[in-house]
Design a binder for these strands. Sequence first.
DNA 1: AGAACGATCGACT
DNA 2: GTCGATCGTTCTA
Length: 209
Amino acid sequence: MAILPRDFYNGDTVCIARELLGKYLVRVLDGEPLVCRITETEAYVGRCDRACHAFGYRRTARNAVMFGPPGHAYIYFIYGMHYCLNFVTEPEGEPSAVLIRAAEPIYGIDTIRRLRFGTETPAKMTTYQRKNFMNGPGKLRKGLSLSIVDNTTDLTENELFVCDSPADIGLPCPPSPPPEVVTSGPRIGVDYAGADKDLPWRFLLTPKR
DNA sequence: AGAACGATCGACT
DNA sequence: GTCGATCGTTCTA
């Protein structure tokens, strides 16, 4: 199975957030696959989580896609200038999603760099740019040229999807990363969520020491 | 109709 | 580590 099927998303949001680490996010833009390896995620569960936009099954025009079937993109505008990419999870009617917080670019790097830093493609990136390529939800979505018009995109079609390996879509396998471990902790930017702010629903892939 | 705020980023100390 | 930018979404009335 090249593209992860809808069943992958039809389950427990916290488990799926962890399982997404190390998988490959693919965005096909003008026929070119932009591929990055997912390194950080967060789970949001409407049923029980005050940090979730759909807490208590509160449904609005913005979060409507979370109430539909799993395996769709939920993209919203935040802080007056950023968009964030989420994957809708759980069976239809259980509004939940995984926020994709960070990834490492693997293929299509020149295009991703152009999308991130403008039409100029510097021969050499600063160390600041190199270290901060896609290490945040707003940066990641910009590097993949996603915006509000991509909200509700079906992740089982050919334009935006996840796979286990670049080989699944006919690209060479990248070198294996150095040994890594999964760590978890409280989510970012949810201090308003009462006790739920401390839920350890942020997952990161970090080098093993 | 108006006000408050946010699942962030980048610049700066 | 701190802090300002900036505007759609949501809530109140």
